[in-house]
């Protein structure tokens, strides 16, 4: 039995996960069950950072992965984000990096600049 804390929402449910059957107790919602299994089999995280932007009123544009990426690729994704330079205007949701590090996930802008 693995004891983990669900990070899907701020409630932070204390989950108990069976390592063989992935049966989960302690979750208050179905998302906890999905998280509990994923966390043991293939943990993922949303990565947020900033990229350099020129021509705007500020010099950094906040970005995030559109959906969670494999936890093991966090630092590869960060390197890819560091390499990017963009130019204003940028709108929320604009794709900054397509299919980052082969994860199938886009990195998108999260501020209008």
């Amino acid at each position: 039995m693995a004891k983990i804390i669900c990070i899907t929402c701020p409630k932070g449910c204390h989950l108990t996960v069976d390592e063989v059957t992935y049966e989960i107790t302690g979750n208050n919602c179905p998302r906890g069950a999905v998280y509990g299994k994923n966390e043991l089999t293939a943990p993922t995280r949303v990565i947020t950072s900033t990229v350099a932007v020129s021509g705007g009123e500020i010099c950094r544009c906040p970005v995030r992965t559109e959906s969670p990426v494999p936890k093991g690729k966090m630092f590869d994704v960060m390197e890819a984000i560091h390499a990017v330079r963009i130019v204003s205007p940028v709108r929320i949701g604009d794709v900054v990096i397509e299919n980052v590090c082969g994860t199938g996930v886009n990195v998108i802008a999260t501020r209008n600049i």
């Binding site: 929402c9 701020p10 949303v46 900033t50 906040p62 995030r64 999260t110 501020r111």
Partner: peptide
């Protein structure tokens, strides 16, 4: 700029901006 905003309100995980 981290995510996790708006889960209650918009049922989405948004960044602060």
């Amino acid at each position: 700029i981290h995510n996790g905003f708006g889960l209650h309100r918009f049922k989405e995980e948004l960044s602060g901006p």
